[in-house]
Amino acid sequence: MRLPDIRKPVSLSTFDRKDLVVPGDVITSDTGFMRGHGTYVDEDKLTASVAGEVQRVDKLICVRPLKTRFNGEVGDVVVGRITEVQQKRWKVETNSRLDSVLLLSSVNLPGGELRRRSAEDELTMREYLQEGDLISAEVQSVFADGALSLHTRSLKYGKLGQGVVVQLSPSLIKRQKSHFHNLPCGASIILGNNGYVWLYPTPENQEEEAGGFYTSLEPVSLSDREVISRLRNCLLALAAHKVLLFDTSVLYCYESSLQHQVKDILKPEVMEEIVMLTQQKLLEHEA
């Protein structure tokens, strides 16, 4: 128990960032630019309508908001939760404005069987995935209204078993070649582009878990559990201080947190200290 403190951002380079804007900030008064997402024109000046980072592509200026719903693009890796089982499709909650769709025809059948989906498959849909289940998937296409169509037609996607989901802002996830990582600290992580991060114990034999609907309900060992809890708290600490999340930053944060107990990581002063150390390590890494 304590009194609240006014906390200043610990980021090392926030103050010299010119590309961070808040609503109402004038981005440019030059009329030669085009108005993109997150901006509006006020008295011939291009003004930000959301808080975030300014991005420029040739003549087009956009503001990428810091806190936002997920705007999916084809190829994005997402972690989502099944909300509804419908005819030939599942509805999936993926932190976007509309629920995403996972069609029965875009999942792998158990055992990797390749055939047309029959009426029996439709009736057994709830045996594969039921309401509340978590899945990892990839965005297959985007509908005209912005809703996403997902697919799990790869062995790395599918139903998720035991583990912890952490819900963060999608803008904090760094786009990378791979969003699946087996971290050397003993756990694995899926950094969904939609801001949902899945932490799970690294499976022992990589082949078995592949894309199946089988989930192991064997108890997870205490050491794995501790690593996962530590990673979870590290992710929350990094997100609280708006540090971009990717495998290196998570790992550095994990290493910096080792001197503290897992439950102490979420204390504001410990969080500050850990994030500061992580940022220093990241800067050294870049140099």
């Binding site: 909300t83 509340g132 998720l160 583990g163 205490l222 559990r225 990581i265």
Partner: peptide, 28 residues
């Protein structure tokens, strides 16, 4: 909130081992 069966098992076993998802003990 919605929680899947596997997540429930994970939480249950964690509480049995006195290590909850956020690293706390049972009486913290």
């Amino acid at each position: 909130v919605r929680v899947s069966e596997a997540e429930k098992v994970y939480i249950l076993h964690g509480i049995r081992d006195d290590l909850r998802v956020d690293g706390r003990g049972c009486e913290d």
